[in-house]
Structure formats: C-alpha cells, structure tokens
Design a protein around this nucleic acid. Structure first.
Lengths: 204, 204, 204, 204
DNA sequence: TATGAATGAGATTTCATTCAT
DNA sequence: CATGAATGAAATCTCATTCAT
C-alpha cells in the first residue's frame, strides 16, 4: 500500500506520534545501552516504551532503522557541540580545546553506552551512517587546524584524536564513582596531544 | 542436566582432540572478528573448523565458554608480552616503553578484532575474566612505576594508559592500508603521556 | 533475556488466542498421554494443534509451563468434583463416598493419562504445583472427617486414600474394554477402606 | 564382526566384566531413580559407574537394553519373593498374606524408584518385558487362590491387588520420615481386600 | 578390548517481522 | 491507525550411538 521505500523512519505528523517516537527512542537508548544492540529485542523496546509492537514497526520498519535513527540523533548533537567548540569566538587555546572536548564527552556520557553499543555492532559503519564517522574526523581536523601545526599530518592526527576522544568516552564504563582524578588525567592526554600537534612544524 | 559443571572448557586428552580445539579456536577467532560475538553462530564455527556441531560442544559446552577461552588465550599472550617489556634489563626509558607498547599492539593486531569484539560484547568483563582487566591494569601500573613519577596517581593513570593502548589497538579497524603515519602518531601519544606521568612530582 | 519472567503462561486477550490455547492444551493432553511428558516434543504439540511453533511459545514459554498449565486445569476439575462430593447435602454414607470417588475417577478418566504422565515426570510435585497434592490430601482428609472415625490417624489415611484413588485412576491403563468387573472391585476396595476408617475408635 | 543379534545384553565371561556390569546396573538404578529413564543419560551412567562410554555400550548396546536388564533383575527378585510367600508351608492366613506383601514391598523399596521410573517410561510394558506384568498378575492370582474365595473374579481381583501393591510401593515417594503409621494403614488396606476376596462366595 | 573423541538428528527456544482484526 | 496474535527461519544445545586409535 505504501509508496514509500522501506528503510527510512516514518516521520510522524501529529503530536501524539512525536511523543511515541520520543518514548521509543528513549527506551531503545536505555536497552541498547544496558544489553547491546543485538541482545535487545524489539518486543522489549515496545514494552518499555509503552508502544504496541505493531506501532513500533510503523515508525521504525526495521531494527536497524531504529538503530540508525538513534545514531543520527546522538551524532547530530555531538557534531553540533564540536562545531560550537571549533567556532568559538576568541582564539582557541590548546587548553581550551582539551577542556572543551572533555566537557563535550562528559555531557554526552549519559548516552555514551548506546553509541558505543551501536558502534560495536557495526551499525555505525554501514552505508548511510559511515557519514557520521567522516563528519567526526572532519571536525577533529577542523579543531587541529584552528590550533595550528603542520597540516600535512592532520589526517592521521584527526583519526588519532577521534580515537582518544572515543577512549575517554568509554572510560567510565569501568565503573562509577569519583572519577575526577580520571578526568584530570584524560584532559591531560588531550592537552598533551593537542600541544604536540600544534607544536609540530607550525608553518608547514 | 549433566552432572558436569558446564562452566569450563573440556581439555582434550588425545592429540586429535587438541588439533580440533586449535581449529575451533582459529575459526572462532576469525568469525568473532569478522562479525561479532553475537552475530557469529556456533554452527558457523563448527562448519568453518570442519567440526561436527556435537564435537564443538564437547569441548566448549557453551558459546560463552568458547569466548572466554579465546579471551584467556589472547590475554595470556598480551600479559606475557607486557611482562617482558616491564622486566627488560637495561633501564627502561619513556621512549622505549612507548615503542614497546606499540610493538606489542602491532604484533597482536592479527588477533585484535576478536578481542575487541569480545570486549564489546561484555564477555570480557564477566567474573573469571574480569581478572584479565585487573591484570592488564596491574601491568600498566608496573610500567608506570618503572618509569618513575608520583605513585599516588598511578591507579588512574594505569586505567588511562590501558584505554590509550586499547584505542591504538582499535585504530586499524578503520581500514587497512599503509598506516605508518598513524603508528607514528600513536607512538607519540603514548610517549607524551608516559613522559607526563614520569615527570609529575617524581619524589612523591 | 526477555524482561518478562518466563514462569507463567501468557493469557491471550483475543478470542482467536483463546481458541488457540484450547487447541494447544488439547493436543498436549493427547500427546503427553500417548507418549509421556519427556517423549512428547513441543514441535509435535505445535503440529498437532495446528499452531506455529512460535505461537505455541508465545502462550507457553516453556515446555514445563505447558505441563503445569495442564496439571492446574485438571487439578481444578478434580478438586471441584471432590468438593461437590464432600459437601453433598444429605448425610454421606460410606457407600456413597466410595461410589462418588469412583464416579469422579471414571469421569476424569479421559484425561487420566496426562495427569499420570505428568505426575510421573516429577512436574506434578514441583513448587507451585505441589499445592495440588496438598489440596488433594486435604480433600481426602475432609472426606474422612465427614465419615467419622478417629481423627488422629486422618493424615496417614488421607495419604493412603489418595494413593488408592490414584491406583484406581491408573487401572484402565492396562487396556480398554468392558471393565465393569474391575470397577466393581475398585469400588469394593474404596468402600472397605472407608468403612475401616469410619469404624476405628469413632469417638477419638 | 559380531554374529550376535543386537538387542541383548552381552553376558561377560570374566570376573572383571561381571563387576563392571554390576557397577553399571547400580549406577543406572540410582540415576533412573533420581531423574527418570528419559532424563538420565548414558554418559552419566558411564561416569557414575566408572566405565568408559564405549565399554558401557559393549555390555548394553542400547539404553533400552540397559533398562530391560534392570527390570528383569528386579522383576526376578520380586517374583521369587512372591513365590516364597505363596508356597509358604503352613496354611497361609489373610493376615499373613497382607503382612507378607507389605514385607516384600518394604524390602524392595530401595529399588522402588527405578522400577516406577521404568514402568512409567513404558519400557516395562514392551515386548519381552510384558512378561513381567503377566507374571506378577499370575502370582497375585495364585495368592488369591490359596486364600480361597470365588475363583471367578480372580482375574480382576489379581489386577486390583497388583495395583494396590504398586500403590503401596509408591507410597514413601511422598517423602521420608517415620512411616510406620502409613505402613500400618497400608497393611490394613491389603488385609481388608484379601479378606473381602477370601470371603466372597467361597464355594464357587 | 578399552577408551573417549566424533557424529548428527533432533529438541527447545528466540525474535524480527507480518497481518488480520 | 492501533493492536497483538501469528509466523517460521535460525540459533543454541543434547545425547544416543559409532568408530578410530
């Protein structure tokens, strides 16, 4: 009946539908984080979000579509936050950048596990979402550019930087508790590497 | 139902059995790496290793037991390599340590994906294998101790260091190719952080 | 894995579902009786009831749950019948009681084998269903009380009586045919034992 | 290689073999009783009897053969005991017969569960073992004959008597403890029914 | 002959997805 | 549209039995 190609989440037109979608995304976030993309079941997502399984499939015709939607949602937030950091008005110091990156990571930590889970599942690297990775590396490159340093190595450095951020992102997975000490060290790593980048052959 | 506790892999007593186990572990390594712990199926492992499904289950009575066995296997190699690095005779410089860590990561890269996949699946953090994490953090602490620096922060730093190594471990997941540039940068990150650690309040 | 506790049968909310459950119970009754609890397979139950295996598991998430449901169903009928016998208005004679018990057994004989099979499988004595046994012994005790006799020995006698009834229940397993002669003898056993019970030390 | 038809337990010729067989039968007895014929596995029997699975299959080429062997073993004992009771020299009173039956049941109680389990599994009624049932009913008839009473009803009464004995056999399954009270009542049932039998139309 | 590794049919169970109401 | 019953392919795991050593 539908003339829409499958594979895309249906955008709900009415308020009620948008609430539903929000509830679904929230439930999926929690479940993917608690278990994993593969261990969580659509039925559970439906149950937890108070949605009938049929309705869930109306909005997200596939489990993967649901995952991609989640990733896009969190990806966008992350990209926006990075853009705000890069485009910050006063000249950005290395220390600022390190502190900013850590702050971003800290803010998104709640949603951390989902992203990790989806990244692990391979969903994150698939067609249509591979964009996220590319975009993130682009932002990292932008940050490095603003801080100076030889542009020649920016590509590799952006990748390394992304992995550093990801590693810090994953940090508190090891258990909750007073992690300020950990954060101090994490910031140190970032600052050290950004300094190193900025220092290297500053004029090309 | 069986009177045998199903928590441990059965050790084969004959040569043929040991070969079989080796083949199984190899096939599982490949499959877990290609897909993921959850996506790989026991049937596939059996097929790929030329083993009947029943034989597979004779040695590894559970998919999880198989995963744990894999992890232990690679964990031991990793720990041995780290021990060799830490106990190296001449006084260990920061540069040596960084280069050594990178070398270890590079050597184990072939088996990298499995470990990543298992770590991601949560298997790696369960009872009995949680030991691996603890052991790894211990080795990282040992390395930091040999390099000097305030021992007070060693615990947090060991965790960070482990995550850095893990991040570097994960690096080439982004795609194959000549990654020497990436390696240079990775080593830089390690060196920078080790220096930073060694520098800090050297005498307490 | 599911967040639902898998210990209870799901109650269907629509008519079609209720029909399905009825069909499943019927098929299971037949199969458990023909083979045994352990020899009958869920696949067979599904096939025989015209249900997809998935649907079967929707309502009875476990083979054991299915068995327990069957037992409860027949247990309830049996208890109701016993209650009607015990609470019969005019003073109940020993002969009435014996005839009544035999009548009950004869009425439930169609479903006899299932119960026997489940009782034999040990399912019948497990937590949650152990109640049935207790309830049955209670009813036997009630019957003995109504007939008089020393209450002191009622507990043991109730157990014996239950076993007698069970034995008579099992009788026609030996093969169909005109069993009136057997029934006459069975009734005699019951009457003899009830008389013996009622006679003993009538006033304590 | 073997010219013997399968389906029969191999009789071991040497002492060592006879010990093995004894150990196997003992282990099987215990396991069939604890679990059930179907739930017990050949591997467990091998393990528990200290026999290699291959050796187990040398003596009992099939799980069913093992069960039948067990049944025959216990059946023979039971039949011998019944024969001794029936052929007891001085004239047998009803009270003697009841006490004797109970005594027999009590003596074989240790092995009770196995027989029950096998009877339940249907093994007991199959070709080659159906004999046991017939033989038991024959003995019951013999007992009734010795006690007098109308021979016309002996067939049905033998069946009932067998079921009574079986019910008493099953009694302590309900749990251990001081069961003397139960035994007293059990004996009462037997005595009552034997009296009833002996009384009826004594001269045809 | 004794051993235990190997076999594979088949059992139970799960879950993404469809479709009738 | 919303609902939840229905579907069935596929996954994990069991175990009687065989066979190479």
């Amino acid at each position: 009946m539908s003339s829409l190609p499958p594979g895309v989440a249906l955008a709900p037109k009415r308020q009620r539908g948008r609430d539903r979608v929000a509830a679904i995304l929230e439930a999926a976030t929690a479940l993917f984080a608690e278990k994993s993309y593969e261990a969580a079941t659509m039925t559970e997502v439906a149950l937890r979000s108070g949605t009938a399984i049929g309705s869930l499939y109306r909005f997200f015709p596939t489990k993967e579509v649901l995952a991609v939607a989640l990733l896009e949602r969190y990806g966008e937030r992350l990209l926006h936050a990075l853009d705000r950091l890069i485009d910050r008005d006063p000249p950005l110091s290395v220390a600022d950048a390190a502190a900013g990156l850590l702050e971003i990571v800290r803010c998104l930590r709640t949603e951390r596990s989902v992203v990790l889970s989806l990244i692990d599942s391979g969903i994150a690297w698939q067609a249509g979402t591979g964009t996220l990775r590319t975009a993130l590396i682009g932002r990292m490159g932008g940050l490095l550019s603003r801080l100076g340093g030889s542009p020649g190595a920016h590509d590799e450095r952006a990748v390394i930087l992304l992995h550093l951020v990801k590693a810090i992102f994953a940090l508190p997975q090891d258990g909750p508790g007073p992690q300020s000490a950990g954060d101090v060290e994490a910031e140190a790593v970032l600052r050290l590497y950004l300094e190193h980048s900025a220092r290297s052959a500053p004029h090309g």
